[in-house]
Amino acid sequence: MTTEKFLEYLQYERNYSSHTVLSYRKDLEQFSSFITRQCGEFSILTIDSDLIRLWIVDLMEQKNTPSTVKRKLSAIKSYFKFLIRQGVTKKNPTNGISGPKNSKKIPIFVKEADMDVLLDHSEFGSGFEAVRNKLIIHLFYITGVRRAEILDLMDSDIDFSTQAIKVTGKRNKQRIIPFGDETHDLLIKYLEERDVRIGIGDGHVFVKEDGAKLYPMLLYRIVKNKLSETTTLSKRSPHILRHTFATSMLNHGAELNSVKELLGHSSLAATEVYTHTTFEELKKSYNAAHPRAADSKKGG
């Protein structure tokens, strides 16, 4: 009876959709079935935190994904909060229990050798679009900026005296990213080409031939088309070049916190995922170079 009252509460007081309510019903039925198997009956008063943890283990052993398990746990947490408000029980056995962590995917990146080929030996052509497109690829790789950040970059954000650009990231947080002599020369060449071809615009660095600000899909196509010439990666987006920047920095000895600041991450955890990538590269190099790494059976 308490289950039905809970579902009615979700539907009529919380205005949950019928689909969501049905999901809650299924989660509660599965939970009830598990408790009954463990205890011989389903009784709210006998459920403790150990049973909740055992239920989570059972879900994982059934090959449920971490996100699915967390969703089911969220439903049970809501159920017990409802029971407490209704005075059915005074304890919540789900308190302090969190679901399994989602496994982080290792970021895809372009190999350094392929980036060298792309920037040093690939044919971009001549003229305004060619100079612009090469600078775009170069900036993504050399600074790790986001797509929106490069689209919103203004002439006033470039400081040639200190060789740094100012970008505005998520939550309007600004950061300064340094650049080297090569980037300096490419920027000067592009801006001269742009100003001769288009004239004074609205201040955006990257524009189309008609002077209008570059739009996201065009930027995506520019990157995808050039990456297609040198890599067989399934994903060939601007974000892949951001991954490539971070991976390259760490592979060449940059401190994790420095890369975090350059990327504009709010926490170090977001940057740490790239350490897995660099470890994979290190492992490949080791296996390829060490005379006894390939055959672990040697030497007994």
Rank of each mutant, 00 (worst) to 15 (best):
N102F: 08
I188N: 05
E123N: 13
G180V: 13
I198M: 09
D185K: 15
I177R: 02
V131D: 08
M115W: 02
G125R: 01
S103W: 12
V145C: 04
D159R: 15
K111I: 02
D185C: 12
G144E: 05
I136V: 06
L151G: 01
V131N: 05
K134I: 01
P216L: 14
V110T: 04
E193Y: 08
K90T: 12
G203P: 14
V167G: 07
R194S: 05
K134E: 09
K224H: 03
E123L: 11
I176K: 04
I106E: 06
M217Y: 05
P93F: 07
R175I: 06
H121P: 07
N133S: 08
R197T: 05
E193F: 03
V131L: 14
P107V: 10
V205Q: 10
K166N: 10
K105M: 00
P178D: 09
H184G: 07
T168F: 13
K91L: 13
G169N: 00
R147Y: 06
L186K: 14
R85W: 13
K90Y: 04
I188H: 09
L153P: 03
A113S: 14
F160A: 11
N92C: 12
T168S: 10
I158N: 02
I222M: 00
S103D: 10
L227Y: 11
T94Q: 04
N92A: 10
H204C: 09
D120F: 10
N95H: 12
Y190H: 01
L227I: 10
I150Q: 14
G180C: 10
K104Y: 08
G203I: 03
D181F: 04
K213T: 14
L118S: 07
L219I: 13
V145R: 01
K134S: 02
H184M: 14
D181W: 06
Q163R: 14
I158D: 04
D185W: 13
I106C: 03
K91D: 12
D157N: 15
I198G: 10
H204D: 08
K213H: 11
G96C: 05
K226Y: 11
L118E: 03
I165E: 08
S98I: 03
I198S: 08
K173Y: 08
R85A: 11
P178W: 15
L191I: 00
V88N: 11
K104T: 07
K91C: 07
F124P: 08
V88R: 07
